[in-house]
Nucleic acid binder design. Structure first.
Length: 438
RNA sequence: GUGAGCGUAGUUCAAUGGUAGAGCACCAGAUUGUGGUUCUGGUUGUUGCGGGUUCGAGUCCCGUCGCUCACCCCA
């Protein structure tokens, strides 16, 4: 016998979790579509040189690579953004610009595991490519907002910053060459706090420079107040600050400014961001970290093409978001999609059971039939355990008289219905599924 | 990848180196067309896996796999 084990950092998904994930993805996709974004797909495997580019970075060590049967050096995608850059370079001439896409799929990273951090996980990306314009930055912000609202998340905030402002500020201090280290350090602000960041910064730059940097990232208040403070600290970045202020104006006009926070300590670790950057936190679950982040990257496709393809986008951490939704909602999750369980009273009447179940299915209801005769309590318990709300009892009496006994498993009330139409209507009412629902 | 802690029944947890246990859950029956109570009976298991020390290992040692935490990085 072979032990049915699975690899570290890889997981099976039981129906209960998988249904929740699918529901979540369906909801997000409907939001994306409502903005006119279209779905795309790219291969799981790419040439190693395509994914790693010039290479040398920290991500290289985490990428699964191997030599295929034809001697090619191949790599599994570790995010959806880099393959997308390659995709745009390959197909830009076939696509309308600006191009808006979304992509939800698995990616792989061979790093060490931790709670909520796995070697195989889902990413959910949405981007607008082909224009470098504040309107695109704003639309991404709006999509983040709408997504979280539609998921029923009560309170969240989108933290916004701009790489260009910070870089210009660092250049003024004469420490632009250490920008990547400083950004990485400042990015930990949320997690390790101000004093720890200060200590780490002093190992990179002077005490005075550290004070300046801390003053910069500590600016807080309303978006307008922060922008004004940044303007004082960083005169050469007026263009970038102006862009953020237009973005803020748009957000106010669109009625989504209440979730907006300008937070200069947000930098994003990745070095390919060049403009606005986003991080999204749940007010009630800050400890879980950012559940949606992204930003503007204006040089991403330059590895693959001379054509200028500026883009802006964001990525939702589905696993984190699922964990968050689990904590926030108290509704029990189901492991069935059925609305009605047709009870088996007599195995020789299976044809009748399925015939009636099909009538329910044609009416848009999900009907599952018990395949063997078991004691009634067992069939009821099964339905309740997997989350099927209704049971349809078709015994000798009902089949002879053409009637239907419908039981509400939760209330344990049941009633006799005189026709299939009445049965359908009653099921729709009890499950909250209107006639229009499919 | 580096460092640390943990791994016993489906689950939550016990067991001075000396016969592997309890609650909950689960299954069967009392009740073959009605599940929430009660009663009776039952399975709870190669103590993650593999070696070693010992008369004897869940317990001590080594290795391995997995989980958790920190670093790193990030979703």
């Amino acid at each position: 016998m072979i032990e049915p084990r699975i690899l570290k950092g890889f997981r099976d998904s039981l129906p209960q979790q998988e249904l929740r994930r699918k529901d979540l993805i369906t909801c997000l996709e409907s939001v994306f579509s409502s903005f006119g974004l279209v779905p795309i797909d790219t291969p799981v495997l790419e040439y190693t040189e395509v994914l790693l580019g010039k290479g040398g970075g920290e991500t290289d060590k985490q990428v699964y690579t191997f030599t295929d049967h034809g001697g090619r050096e191949v790599a599994m995608r570790f995010d959806l953004t880099v393959p997308f850059a390659r995709y745009m370079a390959s197909h830009a001439h076939e696509l309308p610009l600006p191009f808006k896409r979304y992509h939800v799929d698995k990616v792989w990273r061979g790093e060490n595991t931790q709670k909520g951090r796995y070697r195989e996980f889902y990413q959910c990306d949405f981007d607008i490519v082909g224009i470098d314009h504040v309107s695109a930055d704003f639309e991404i912000l709006l999509i983040i907002n709408e997504s979280l609202k539609r998921l029923g998340i009560p309170a969240f905030s989108v933290h916004l910053s701009h790489r260009g402002i910070f870089n210009s500020f660092l250049a003024d201090l004469g420490i632009a060459d250490r920008a990547p280290d400083i950004l990485r350090c400042v990015d930990k602000m949320q997690k390790i706090g101000l004093s720890e960041v200060e200590a780490q910064l002093q190992e990179i730059i002077t005490i005075q420079q550290t004070r300046d940097v801390l003053a910069f990232i500590s600016a807080s208040g309303t978006p307008l107040e922060v922008l004004s403070a940044l303007g004082d600290l960083c005169g050469k970045a007026q263009e970038h600050i102006h862009r953020l202020s237009i973005l803020t104006d748009f957000a106010m006009d669109a009625g989504c400014a209440d979730t907006l926070v300008i937070n200069p300590s947000i930098t994003r670790g990745l070095d390919y961001y060049t403009g606005v950057v986003y991080e999204t936190y749940l007010d009630e679950l800050e400890a879980i970290g950012s559940i949606c982040s992204g930003g503007r990257y204006n040089d991403l496709a330059s590895l693959y093409t001379k054509q200028k393809l500026p883009g802006v986008g964001a990525s939702i951490g589905l696993d984190r978001l699922l964990a968050a939704l689990d904590e926030l909602s108290d509704t029990p999750s189901r492991s069935s999609t059925a609305d009605v369980l047709v009870i088996c009273m007599d195995e020789s009447r299976m044809g009748d059971y399925q015939r009636i179940a099909c009538r329910l299915r044609e009416a848009g209801l999900h009907a599952e039939v018990s395949l063997t005769k078991r004691r009634l309590p067992q069939q009821f318990s099964y339905a309740e355990r997997v989350g099927i709300p209704l049971a349809l009892i078709l015994g000798e009496e009902e089949l002879e008289s053409g009637t239907y006994t419908l039981r509400d498993l939760q209330s344990r009330m049941q009633e006799r219905l005189q026709s299939i139409e009445k049965l359908v209507n009653r099921c729709r009412l009890l499950t909250g599924k209107g006639a229009h629902t499919l």
